Computed example of a mutant assay.
Amino acid sequence: MTEGAPDDRAMPALWPQSDGTPVSCRDKLLILQENHTELQGILSDAFEDAILMGVDEAAMRQILHDLVNSLRSPKA
């Protein structure tokens, strides 16, 4: 794997639905996997940029966690 390349080990083996059953539609799985890969690349770039600009690693991890936790459900 090259530096900055997505880590396939981080890809979820299953994408659970609210009832616990896994998403099984191939088209949905493809979109979920593509989104995961794209997000992983963007987050990795943002994380690396912040660290190289002097942001504390633990602080940046917390900032990214907070960003995810601030997302609102489209079902709300």
Score class of each variant (00 low, 15 high):
A59R: 01
G20F: 00
D19T: 09
T21R: 08
H65M: 01
M53P: 01
M1W: 03
L14W: 07
V55P: 01
P12D: 11
E3P: 04
K75V: 12
A10Q: 14
L64T: 08
I31L: 14
S73A: 05
D7P: 00
A13W: 10
S70D: 13
L43P: 08
E57H: 00
A59K: 02
M60G: 02
L29Q: 03
Q40Y: 02
S24C: 06
A13S: 13
A46I: 07
M60W: 03
H36F: 14
R9C: 12
E3Q: 10
C25Y: 07
G20V: 07
G4R: 09
M1S: 14
H65S: 02
R72S: 14
P12F: 06
T21E: 03
E34L: 06
L71V: 15
A50E: 00
L39E: 09
D19I: 04
L52P: 01
D27W: 03
T2F: 01
E34A: 14
A13T: 15
L32N: 03
D7T: 07
T37E: 10
V68D: 05
L39V: 11
L29N: 08
L30V: 06
P22F: 02
N35G: 06
S73I: 03
R9D: 12
Q40P: 04
D66T: 04
S24A: 15
E38T: 15
R72K: 15
L67V: 08
K75L: 10
S18G: 05
V55E: 02
V55R: 00
M11V: 10
E3C: 05
D27H: 04
S70F: 13
Q33G: 09
W15T: 04
L32Y: 06
V23C: 02
T37S: 02
N69E: 15
I51L: 06
A10K: 14
A59V: 14
P12S: 09
Q40W: 03
R26S: 12
A76C: 11
I31Y: 13
G20L: 00
G4P: 12
S73N: 06
S24I: 07
E48F: 15
F47V: 05
I63Q: 03
M53T: 14
L29K: 08
I63N: 01
A50Y: 01
N35I: 11
I42D: 00
A13I: 14
G4V: 14
A76Y: 00
L29I: 13
E48H: 15
A13G: 13
I31R: 13
H65P: 02
S24K: 13
H65D: 07
I42M: 06
P12N: 08
E48W: 10
D66R: 11
H65A: 02
Q17T: 13
A46D: 09
P74A: 08
L14S: 12
A46R: 08
A10E: 08
E3H: 03
A50H: 00
Q62N: 03
A46F: 01
M53E: 12
G20C: 04
L29R: 07
R26T: 10
I63T: 05
R72T: 15
E34V: 12
N35H: 09
K28N: 14
A58C: 00
D19L: 05
E3T: 10
A5E: 15
Q33S: 15
P6G: 04
G54E: 05
E57P: 06
P74F: 07
H36P: 04
K28V: 15
A76L: 11
P6N: 00
D49F: 09
A58L: 04
Q33C: 13
G54Q: 01
R26Q: 10
T21Q: 09
V23Y: 00
A76V: 13
Q17R: 11
